[in-house]
């Protein structure tokens, strides 16, 4: 019997054990994203995916090394990162960190994964032209304007006004960005009126964000400022709240159902306890009769 049970378990486990068998390493989908944050830090993110079956799946826990190219064209290690549950590894570069710009004024980055038994080596290059965004908040009576100045570093290393690029203005909220509008740069300048109905925090503070999105040459570049232009939010007070799942008072059907169920069940319990009392009384009576 023991042998039979052993064989049954072994045969059940066999197909799963076959998963461990070695196979060809997967080639990867590997891409880089560049983001220049409002504080001037540069964030480079590398995402690795592979396709075991019909769908791409992210790779978690993979080491990625990030480099930049120096004036000799050699790779200089910036840092390494481990991919998270989204398959992305990121590094932050300090604004003061000296990065070499080539003769075209571009900063060149390289990211590379490790070659393993499961995955092939993957490598990606990124050339970025540095731009600078500066936001100004102008208040004139009731009129509030956000001004944005944009300059780009040309091949001679000089700052020149940037034109014909779209700037997206928004206010970051808890789950997403609340769009304020979109403007195009003209001679390094654009502006937008701040709406009067944006709710701020208790100090009326609102963070305003201006961005160039995923540009082929600049990547994503942000500028932001905290204004005190927000409206004070008022608590949503309702004198007689309706009966909903999310209001303090429950829907009637729910209260009725609960009461009916509880009365039904506890009614039976009380009945059972009363019966026990009656059983005891009947016992007392029986004992008295026996004594007589």
């Amino acid at each position: 019997m023991k042998t039979k049970i052993f064989f049954i378990i072994a045969s059940l486990l066999l197909p799963f054990g076959m998963k461990l068998a070695a196979s060809e390493p997967y080639s990867l989908s590997f891409y880089l994203e560049y983001r220049k944050l409002a504080e001037g830090e540069r964030k480079i993110s590398a995402t690795a995916k592979y396709k075991p079956d019909r769908f791409w799946e992210v790779i978690q826990g993979m080491k990625v090394e990030f480099y930049y190219l120096n004036e000799e064209g050699d790779e200089v290690l910036l840092a390494d990162g481990i991919t998270d549950e989204k398959g992305t590894a990121s590094i932050l570069i300090d604004p003061e960190y000296p990065l070499y710009r080539n003769e075209e004024g571009l900063i060149e980055f390289v990211a590379r994964t490790e070659e393993t038994e499961k995955y092939e080596l993957a490598e990606e290059w990124l050339s970025i032209r540095d731009i600078y965004l500066e936001m100004k908040l102008i208040e004139d009576g009731d009129e509030r304007t956000i001004e944005l100045h944009a300059e780009v570093l040309d091949e001679n290393g000089e700052l020149v006004p940037l034109s014909d690029e779209d700037i997206y203005f928004s206010v970051p909220r808890m789950f997403s960005k609340l769009p304020l509008g979109e403007e195009t740069l003209e001679d390094g300048f654009c502006s937008i009126t701040f709406p009067a109905n944006i709710v701020g925090n208790a100090e009326r503070e609102v963070t305003i964000l201006a961005e160039i999105f995923e540009h082929y040459e600049f990547g994503t570049v942000q500028a932001s400022k905290v204004s005190t232009w927000g409206k004070l939010g008022s608590p949503h007070l309702i004198e007689h709240p309706s009966r909903e799942l999310w209001t303090p008072v429950a829907p009637l059907w729910m209260i009725i159902t609960l009461i009916v169920l509880l009365v039904g069940v506890w009614g039976h319990y009380i009945y059972a306890i009363v019966q026990l009392v009656l059983i005891r009384k009947a016992g007392t009576r029986f004992e008295r009769e026996q004594q007589v």
Binding site: Q275, L276, L278
Partner: peptide, 15 residues
Amino acid sequence: LKYHDTPEQRKKLNR
């Protein structure tokens, strides 16, 4: 509970 399995007690308990 002074249970003596009298017909009355038995009936109540079973039910």
